[in-house]
Amino acid sequence: MNLKFIFFIFVAMNLNAQNEIIEKKDSLKEKTLEFHRENFWKNLPKPTNWTTDFENLYTDIEQTKLDSVIANFEKKTKIEIAIVTIDSLKTSKEEFDDFSLNLANKWGVGKYGKDNGILIAISKCYRRIRILNGYGIEKIISDKETKVIIENYFIPDFRREKYYEGTFKGLLEIIKMIESRGGK
């Protein structure tokens, strides 16, 4: 047999074996990630404050400022607002909306029986934001108005990688709108 032909077969077999190893490693990584996400979903940690930053978008000082604004608003109105940033280890892009709703329900954002909670879920890695309004809030702010707030107050700064600034502006606009409509 020709030595070049034997070498070619050897190289082709070796590359095929390497591809199989890589595919197995990728499959194992995907299964491990899915297991981690499923486990996280079932065992959600309790929020540490009004702002829970899994994605590390905010400094400690920024988180404190967001928490302070929300705490003062909650004292006046009894309306609860939670902000959560979600990284790719917690959920997939396709499950982001369902994960956000699950989080709002498990954390119990809003007063019991009043459904007056708002969850602001942000994911830099997926370029997603979702604001979930409890039924009591939907009487004050419509989904259409919430979308306008996202587009006009959150997104412009997010596009410039200014996540705190966009979050702060959006939060203030939500509060302003609720207060102007006598929300309590």
Rank of each mutant, 00 (worst) to 15 (best):
residue 53 D to V: 02
residue 53 D to R: 04
residue 56 N to H: 11
residue 57 L to P: 05
residue 58 Y to T: 02
residue 58 Y to A: 01
residue 60 D to C: 01
residue 60 D to R: 13
residue 61 I to M: 08
residue 62 E to N: 04
residue 64 T to V: 09
residue 65 K to I: 13
residue 65 K to F: 09
residue 66 L to E: 04
residue 66 L to I: 15
residue 66 L to C: 02
residue 67 D to F: 10
residue 67 D to G: 12
residue 68 S to A: 14
residue 70 I to G: 00
residue 71 A to V: 05
residue 74 E to Y: 09
residue 75 K to Y: 02
residue 76 K to E: 15
residue 77 T to P: 01
residue 77 T to F: 06
residue 80 E to Y: 07
residue 80 E to W: 06
residue 81 I to W: 06
residue 83 I to H: 04
residue 83 I to Q: 06
residue 84 V to Q: 10
residue 85 T to Y: 00
residue 86 I to V: 12
residue 87 D to E: 08
residue 90 K to N: 08
residue 90 K to M: 12
residue 91 T to A: 09
residue 91 T to N: 09
residue 92 S to G: 09
residue 92 S to K: 10
residue 92 S to M: 07
residue 93 K to L: 09
residue 93 K to V: 12
residue 94 E to Q: 13
residue 95 E to D: 14
residue 97 D to N: 09
residue 97 D to F: 11
residue 97 D to C: 03
residue 99 F to A: 01
residue 101 L to G: 06
residue 102 N to F: 06
residue 103 L to Y: 15
residue 103 L to G: 10
residue 104 A to M: 12
residue 104 A to T: 09
residue 105 N to Q: 14
residue 106 K to S: 15
residue 107 W to K: 07
residue 109 V to W: 01
residue 109 V to R: 00
residue 109 V to F: 06
residue 110 G to C: 09
residue 113 G to H: 04
residue 115 D to V: 06
residue 115 D to T: 02
residue 117 G to S: 01
residue 118 I to V: 10
residue 119 L to P: 01
residue 120 I to H: 05
residue 120 I to F: 10
residue 121 A to R: 05
residue 123 S to V: 06
residue 124 K to C: 05
residue 124 K to I: 01
residue 124 K to W: 02
residue 124 K to N: 10
residue 125 C to L: 14
residue 125 C to T: 15
residue 126 Y to G: 08
residue 128 R to E: 11
residue 130 R to H: 11
residue 130 R to K: 15
residue 130 R to T: 09
residue 131 I to A: 03
residue 131 I to W: 04
residue 131 I to C: 04
residue 131 I to Q: 02
residue 134 G to R: 08
residue 135 Y to S: 13
residue 137 I to D: 00
residue 137 I to N: 02
residue 138 E to Y: 05
residue 139 K to F: 08
residue 139 K to D: 14
residue 141 I to N: 00
residue 141 I to S: 02
residue 142 S to T: 13
residue 143 D to Q: 08
residue 145 E to C: 05
residue 145 E to N: 06
residue 147 K to P: 02
residue 147 K to G: 10
residue 149 I to E: 06
